Amino acid sequence: MAQSDQSWHAPDAATIEAMAREALAGLPAPFGAHLGAVVLLVEEFADEDTLDALGIEDPFELTGLYHGRPVGEKSSFDSGAPPDRIHLYRRAILDEWVDTGVDLRALVHHIVVHEVGHHFGLSDDDMHRLEGE
């Protein structure tokens, strides 16, 4: 194996966030109109409380998570509630990227669409159709 002058570095949180924002910006208009208040966070791993609540032991198994109420369940009584959030877990995403060989931008797009799908209460079939658009 030839050695390069430049060493390889895993994409940082800012790079993952930029890819995720690009994926959000590329969603069809009806979805984008409802996503303005959703906060996007890129963290290394999910915290222990989150993993415990989901019954997940290995933090590498969780690449993203939507926190909040789906659009169809919101009401005017929700004022004062924290904003909805999409959490992306960088180390788990990078691990899946390396394991699967899927293009990183495509993987981040897939995760974002899946989490946005939860925001809108979409089925897995709906999310697959959205991902294809």
Rank of each mutant, 00 (worst) to 15 (best):
M1H: 10
A2T: 14
S4F: 12
Q6M: 15
Q6S: 15
Q6L: 14
S7V: 01
W8S: 07
H9S: 11
A10E: 08
A10R: 12
P11T: 08
P11W: 11
D12F: 00
A13P: 02
T15H: 09
I16V: 03
E17H: 04
A18I: 02
M19K: 01
A20P: 00
A20Y: 01
A20M: 04
A20T: 02
E22M: 07
A23D: 09
L24Q: 10
P28N: 11
A29R: 13
P30H: 12
P30R: 03
P30N: 07
G32I: 12
G32V: 11
G32Y: 12
G32A: 12
H34K: 15
G36W: 06
A37F: 07
V38R: 10
V39N: 04
L41E: 13
L41H: 14
V42M: 03
V42G: 05
E43L: 11
E44D: 12
E44Q: 09
E44K: 13
E44Y: 11
F45G: 06
F45M: 12
A46D: 15
A46F: 13
D47E: 14
D49A: 15
T50S: 15
T50N: 07
T50M: 08
L51S: 01
D52T: 14
L54H: 01
G55T: 02
I56V: 14
E57W: 01
D58L: 10
D58A: 11
P59Y: 03
P59H: 05
F60H: 13
F60Q: 12
F60I: 07
E61M: 05
L62Q: 08
T63R: 14
G64A: 04
G64C: 05
L65A: 13
H67Y: 03
G68N: 05
V71H: 09
V71I: 12
G72I: 05
E73V: 07
S75K: 10
S76H: 06
F77P: 15
F77V: 10
D78R: 11
D78M: 02
S79Q: 15
S79F: 15
A81W: 08
A81S: 14
R85A: 02
I86V: 11
L88C: 05
L88T: 04
L88A: 03
Y89L: 02
Y89M: 04
R91N: 11
A92E: 01
A92I: 06
L94R: 06
L94V: 00
E96R: 02
E96Q: 08
W97D: 01
W97E: 07
V98P: 01
T100M: 02
V102H: 00
V102F: 01
D103L: 03
R105V: 08
R105T: 08
L107S: 00
V108K: 04
H109Y: 08
H109R: 14
H109S: 09
H110V: 15
H110R: 05
I111D: 01
I111G: 01
H114T: 13
G117S: 07
H118W: 09
H118F: 04
H119N: 12
H119T: 03
F120L: 06
F120R: 07
G121F: 04
L122V: 11
S123M: 11
S123F: 04
S123W: 03
D125M: 07
D125Q: 12
D126P: 10
M127L: 12
H128Y: 13
H128R: 14
R129W: 14
L130G: 13
L130A: 13
L130H: 04
E131I: 06
G132Y: 06
